[in-house]
């Protein structure tokens, strides 16, 4: 007899606990539309807000005169754990002083190898490279993941570096 009572009381308790749980889901089902946290991506793509530190992919800052802060010192290439940065450079005599200096040809960034650890950005002495917020990195072909970050014709400018370091 006891076993039967136990059985039915368990079924009853099970039903009650189920209803309690459904109470919570029901409460969320009928709450005001303002509280809804679901986002309609990609429709809301233009209004998405990211933290300024959010690390999506590496980019090189250019100013209006197509100048860059990178003097091809290769520190970033050294600190990168995965070899995702290749700095291609040549030596050129400075027209004013006549001293030979490194000049950047191509700043190659392999997005496919990058783990977004931020070590290169921290190591850069001239703040030439930064992380941007463009998180949609899917492409159709793997070769598109290798990028050249400096624009054609861009030149290193010491003034640009000084201005940025002052801040």
């Amino acid at each position: 007899m006891n076993a039967i009572i136990n059985y039915f009381s368990e079924v009853l308790n099970g039903g009650i606990s189920l209803l309690k749980g459904m109470g919570i889901t029901g409460k969320h089902f009928v709450r005001s539309p303002k509280e809804i946290i679901t986002q309609q991506y990609p429709e809301n793509k233009d209004t998405l807000v990211f933290g300024e530190r959010f690390r999506a992919q590496l980019f090189m800052e250019h100013n209006d005169e197509n100048q860059i802060r990178c003097d091809a010192c290769q520190t970033c290439e050294t600190v990168c754990p995965n070899g995702s940065i290749e700095v291609v450079w040549h030596r050129e005599a400075d027209p004013e002083t006549g001293k030979k200096k490194k000049v950047l040809d191509k700043y190659v960034y392999h997005l496919s190898m990058c783990t977004f650890c931020n070590l290169c950005v921290l190591a850069c002495p001239t703040e030439a490279i930064k992380m941007n917020q463009e998180f949609e990195t899917a492409v159709y072909d793997r070769s598109e993941l290798t990028k050249v970050l400096n624009k054609p014709g861009s030149k290193f400018s010491q003034d640009f570096v000084d201005k940025s370091l002052e801040k």
């Binding site: 933290g51 530190r53 690390r55 977004f116 921290l122 992380m131």
Partner: peptide, 24 residues
Amino acid sequence: MEETVGARLTMNYNIPGGLMFDIH
């Protein structure tokens, strides 16, 4: 995490000797 660290899962916020950035 995204605001302070810059990443949501693979954070890499610690460096030997302290933190990568100060808190937001």
